[in-house]
């Protein structure tokens, strides 16, 4: 599983960097069968954004196996972390709210400066 994400993340990062709009552009056929791929993309964007802004207190990240050099590498431990923090407020709104905004805006969403 990790291998798949290791492959996907760089592509994903490039898409963001170029501001490419097509959502399914780089998706493999396996990803197309994942009914959660849009939601997961939004989760990753929202959490990465909060990480970049230093909005998540360090003590909440102490045992995170899904974080390397400030980059989110989602795994099952991340599923657990997200689930147990989805109603925690970061910079005024809950993680769920952040995710919903990112999902609604799709590829046009940018991490607020």
């Amino acid at each position: 599983m990790t291998g798949r994400f290791a492959l996907r993340l760089p592509a994903f990062a490039i898409l963001i960097a170029l501001g490419v709009a097509a959502c399914d552009g780089g998706a493999t056929s396996e990803e197309k069968t994942d009914p959660a791929r849009q939601r997961k993309a939004a989760i990753e964007k929202a959490v990465q954004c909060l990480l970049d802004r230093g909005a998540i207190p360090d003590e909440q990240l102490r045992s995170a196996t899904w974080l390397r050099d400030g980059k989110l590498l989602p795994n099952a431990d991340f599923t657990d972390w997200y689930t147990t923090h989805d109603n925690v407020k970061y910079q005024g709104q809950t993680l769920l709210d952040w995710t919903e905004q990112a999902e609604k805006a799709g590829n046009t969403w940018r991490c607020p400066p």
Partner: peptide
């Protein structure tokens, strides 16, 4: 919206019960 397949304790609180996480696909 799960990533990867693994059993682990729920969160990092003491006395956390074991939970199962599976990949969304």
């Amino acid at each position: 919206n799960g990533y990867g397949n693994k059993a682990r304790p729920h969160g990092d609180q003491p006395g956390a019960p074991w939970v199962s996480y599976v990949d969304s696909t």
